[in-house]
């Protein structure tokens, strides 16, 4: 697991459907053994990008390299893909279903059976092995769908909104599995618009907006490049100060505290002094890293 090895490389990739351009001139590197977050609002081009990576559609221009090779049908077997649009054969039994998905990835023989048992145990669904999938709850079905993407032990796992609709316990369970797979040297592309989730598991991110890349890099770098210009404040009074556009560019009030994004040129010391001068009673004043959500919103609403 060489840290600098590239699993997926896109170079100047564009794709349009008729008039509509879904992806424009996109270049990115997904490094091996890392979790790569493909982030962006709905309609940004995430799904189209993924479909080109898994060879469902071909790009109009540009190249895509997988494991250093041009994508073709044989490479598909090394990818596990859990699309956002996903389902199961309703009347098929869980075990038959998983066997089918393993075989369709060219996995044969006894190892299929042992993998089925292993994975069902891991997501705590062993006793459902011989039930039809229509008898399963939605959350259970989602876990089975997750297994269909990983059962053939792929080197590259692509998850498109894998946690949507899951309860917190199961989100935690799947998140652990994803991190285990990363530790085992697998590369994971994780697409979502839920920034809180991405923040917790992604090493690198690429932010897409309106078919184009807004930025790409490691989560650490991005956060530090934004600097510490965010303050969490809990105070009584001092409203006039927090509303001053010379100091505060953005104010988000939560239940008991406020998230303050400092205006360019303003610093936290000045803000604190002004608050004290205004007679506000301060309960909390803490410099915080910007959340990915803040970065995301700032970047997306920034004029191009």
């Amino acid at each position: 697991m060489a840290a600098n090895e590239t699993t997926v490389k896109l170079d100047g990739v564009s794709k349009s459907f008729g008039e509509f351009t879904a992806v424009r001139d996109l270049s990115l590197d997904v490094r091996a053994g890392r979790v790569f977050g493909l982030l962006g609002p709905n309609g940004a081009g995430k799904t189209t990008t993924i479909r080109m990576i898994v060879n469902i559609t071909a790009p109009d221009s540009g190249t895509i390299l997988l494991f250093g090779r041009r994508i073709d049908a044989s490479l598909q077997d090394r990818i596990g893909y859990l699309p956002e649009e996903r389902g199961l054969y309703k009347k098929m039994r869980v075990a038959d279903q998983l066997r089918f998905f393993a075989e369709i990835k060219n996995m044969r023989g006894k190892q299929v059976e042992s993998k089925i048992d292993e994975w069902l145990a891991r997501v705590k669904l062993s006793e459902w092995k011989n039930r039809r999938s229509m008898e399963l709850s939605k959350g259970m079905q989602q876990k089975i769908q997750f297994i269909t993407a990983v059962i053939h032990d792929p080197d590259l796992l692509i998850l498109d909104e894998p946690f949507s609709g899951l309860d917190p316990v199961n989100v935690e369970l799947l998140k652990e599995i994803v991190l285990d797979l990363k530790r085992a040297g697998k590369t994971i592309i994780f697409s979502t618009h839920q920034m809180e989730v991405a923040e917790k598991i992604c090493d690198d991110i690429c932010l897409l907006n309106r078919s184009q890349k807004v930025f790409e890099g490691s989560l650490r770098e991005i956060k530090s490049s934004f600097g510490r210009n965010s303050v969490a404040v809990r105070c009584e009074g001092g409203n006039g100060v927090l509303d001053d556009p010379a100091l505060v560019s953005k104010l988000v009030r939560h239940v008991d505290e406020a998230q303050v994004l400092l205006a360019p040129g303003a610093d936290a010391q000045t803000l604190l002094k002004r608050l004290i001068d205004s007679g506000a009673v301060i309960g909390k004043f803490e410099m915080v890293e910007p959340s990915l959500n803040d970065i995301f919103i700032t970047k997306v609403t920034e004029p191009a």
Binding site: V54, I56, Q76, I79, G87, F101
Partner: peptide, 17 residues
């Protein structure tokens, strides 16, 4: 239509033509 209605098509197309 089955794969369309059950929304399995996209999973399958990452494996078969």
């Amino acid at each position: 239509i089955e794969e369309k209605e059950t929304r399995i098509a996209e999973i399958l197309f990452s494996s078969v033509k």
